[in-house]
Design a protein around this nucleic acid. Structure first.
Length: 225
DNA sequence: GTAGGGATACACT
DNA sequence: GTGTATCCCTACT
């Protein structure tokens, strides 16, 4: 359908699951921090029993392997984290705290474990199904936080190792849409080691970013100690 | 602030 | 094999 003539910079094309394709494997075959930055504003998609779920990523965290003590891969491969050591472009889904699943995308070549944790997203399509899974949460909170994101999308350990380049669960090749928001960086959440590495990235001020609200708005103002 | 809940990793028999 | 501290969290007070 026609869109109004742009008077300044043209708008990127809106996401359309019939038009856009999964990002190619080469996208993921890079350092996790670079992939993390490029994921902000992209659309996560799942086609599920005739329903398309889609959400725009607004918060992610990069994890590395042997040199990152906060990473599941730090101590080498195990049954749980095996997917992280496999080829890039797959989903690493793990279960934690007895009740939550978290979704990562695997980066770098086989044998080199790096990944990006998907922490927050803004719902675009399939909101009815997401709401049914989240029992009364506000729309902005449906996918806020890694556990909520996994739950709204219905992703579990069954999806560990899912190939993101095939079209079941995938991230679209539509250009990132960031609504003019700046990309911010800060320490990762929920870890107690390597907190000095600012490998959490998010879109400034977005309502679907997790963590304390003041962090989402103004990380540099964090008070000195 | 903390209860909730189960898998995981690792130390130790 | 068993014991147990920990865990990339959420929802509640």
């Amino acid at each position: 359908m026609p869109r109004p003539r742009a008077t300044e910079a043209p708008e990127p094309p809106a996401f359309d699951p019939r038009v856009h394709r999964p990002l190619p494997r080469a996208f993921y075959d890079r350092p996790a921090l670079a992939v993390a930055r490029d994921l902000l504003g992209r659309v996560l998609v799942r086609r599920e029993r005739g329903v398309t779920l889609a959400a725009r990523l607004v918060e992610v965290e990069a994890y590395r392997g042997a040199d990152d003590p906060a990473s599941h891969a730090y101590r080498g491969p195990t049954a749980r984290n095996a997917v992280m050591f496999g080829p890039p472009g797959r989903a690493y889904v793990y279960f934690t705290y007895g009740m939550h699943h978290c979704v990562n995308v695997v980066c770098r070549e086989r044998g080199r474990a790096e990944a990006v944790l998907l922490r927050g997203a803004a719902p675009l399509l399939g909101l009815a199904r997401m709401r049914s899974r989240r029992g009364g949460a506000a729309d902005a909170a449906l996918l806020r936080g890694p556990g909520c994101l996994a739950r709204s999308f219905g992703l579990t350990r069954e999806h560990d190792g899912e190939d993101l380049t095939r079209g079941g669960v995938w991230i679209a090749d539509a250009p990132p849409v960031r609504e003019g928001r700046r990309v911010r960086r800060g320490p990762r959440i929920g870890i107690r080691v390597a907190v000095e590495r600012p490998w959490r990235l998010w879109l400034e001020g977005h309502p679907c970013v997790s963590g304390p609200r003041r962090l989402a708005a103004a990380p540099e103002r964090a008070k000195p100690r």
